[in-house]
Design a protein around this nucleic acid. Structure first.
Lengths: 228, 228
DNA sequence: GTCTATACTCTGATAGAC
DNA sequence: GTCTATCAGAGTATAGAC
């Protein structure tokens, strides 16, 4: 559960998530990273490539996790409103639980070199396509009222991505509660309706907490520093 | 209109906006900034304090501009739905027109030292209060349907802030069109109603383009590099 | 108001011993 | 697998001439 005696590579990764998300990639020194991971700066390079490589790995892994999780969540949902609800739920829960990783993903695209940036943007685009397709389907069968699919896609993703910036583990709202609220906000935003009645989160087959927890065995955010 | 022969201090500021927004504050070198502004790095310091001071000035000025504009926009709007519409409109238009400045404001809080960060966060809080108060008023008179005012505040601001990340001047949608769409999205999100009927942007007394252009005489974003 | 030259620190990364 | 020592370059900022 906790990170006591975690493998060195993982300790480095966790230290990187903490520092990159708090100060930014460019402002984080290699010595600082080493100290946070409990090594000398030279030893770092036994476990990773360059500092750039470390960022690239974090970003690609994070995007892959997000897309994979979303695709799994969509696999047994047919209706556009159920699919949108799940996209929102997955996005928000991930941005709350993998909070540091998501902050890095969402803010450090500019720190990537041209090649890596191209890869990451492509991953991002294919993830966004899941949203666009869902909105287009809901618009087509008149479940959603949307003036512009592209704009609505960006708006919905912005709405859910913003969570990463203010969510705090241990706050008054847990990840699932925030996600449920956001599902409602999203459904309202696209005026989701069936039989002329507004659809709400409580009418949706949302993913239960266990659905997520079963996928978290490997690599989550590092545990936050203990409260004083 | 253009920046030909602009005062040196302004050229530096513009160069800073371009570089800070594109690469980030920490990743921008002082020599790079000097070159972009057309000076030697030593000459920079005749027109500004430290690199940190330059960021602080940009961020405080931007926050002040945003809050001032919002307060002016609210001065002749009474009803919660009109006030929300104007907050959204101002926020989106500013994030589109002062795109670079807003990107810096929204991403570089972490680059500020403790003292400046405290100031800027306070400015941010008082700006957010305009939104919270508007939502609380609309909830109280049952114009809005909101489960959690704090969460809805953050959600709405996130929705509108996101525009800065993808808006491009000269794209297929101009700032006012995007803002109008976002007003609709925002009103839907809070299920704004009067007499049991949904309220839309077209029913609102939105600010005309002239309202904004009258305020842009002084300092906008630098002109984008000419197309090839 | 702008420059050249420079001080001093920190940067990412490597060499090679243990 | 970790360390100390070190490299070459880039970082911010200043001194002082013009």
């Amino acid at each position: 559960m906790t990170n006591v005696e975690a493998p060195t590579a993982e300790r480095i990764r966790n230290a990187a998530l903490v520092l990159f998300s708090a100060k930014g990639f460019a402002a984080t020194g290699i010595r600082e990273l080493a100290e946070a991971a409990g090594l000398s700066s030279a030893s770092l390079y036994h476990h990773m490539g360059t500092k750039d490589d470390l960022l690239i790995e974090i970003m690609k892994e994070g995007h892959a996790r997000l897309t994979d999780t979303a695709q799994n969540a969509l696999s047994d949902a047919d209706r556009p409103e159920a699919r949108l609800a799940r996209l929102v739920q997955v996005h928000v829960v991930m941005h709350a639980v993998y909070n540091l990783e998501c902050r890095v993903i969402d803010t450090e695209v500019r720190s990537l070199d041209t090649i890596a940036r191209k890869d990451v943007v492509a991953m991002r685009d294919s993830y966004e396509a899941l949203w666009s397709e869902t909105l287009a389907a809901g618009l087509h069968e008149e479940t959603f009222q949307i003036a512009d699919v592209r704009l609505a896609t960006l708006a919905l993703i912005d709405l859910c991505t913003g969570v990463a910036a203010w969510f705090r583990t241990g706050g008054d709202l847990d990840a699932f509660t925030v996600a449920a609220h956001h599902v409602d906000l999203a459904l309202s935003m696209v005026s989701a309706r069936r039989n002329r009645r507004a659809i709400h989160a409580k009418d949706m087959p949302l993913l239960p907490p266990e659905w997520f927890t079963g996928r978290w065995s490997d690599a989550t955010d590092p545990a936050p520093p203990a409260a004083p």
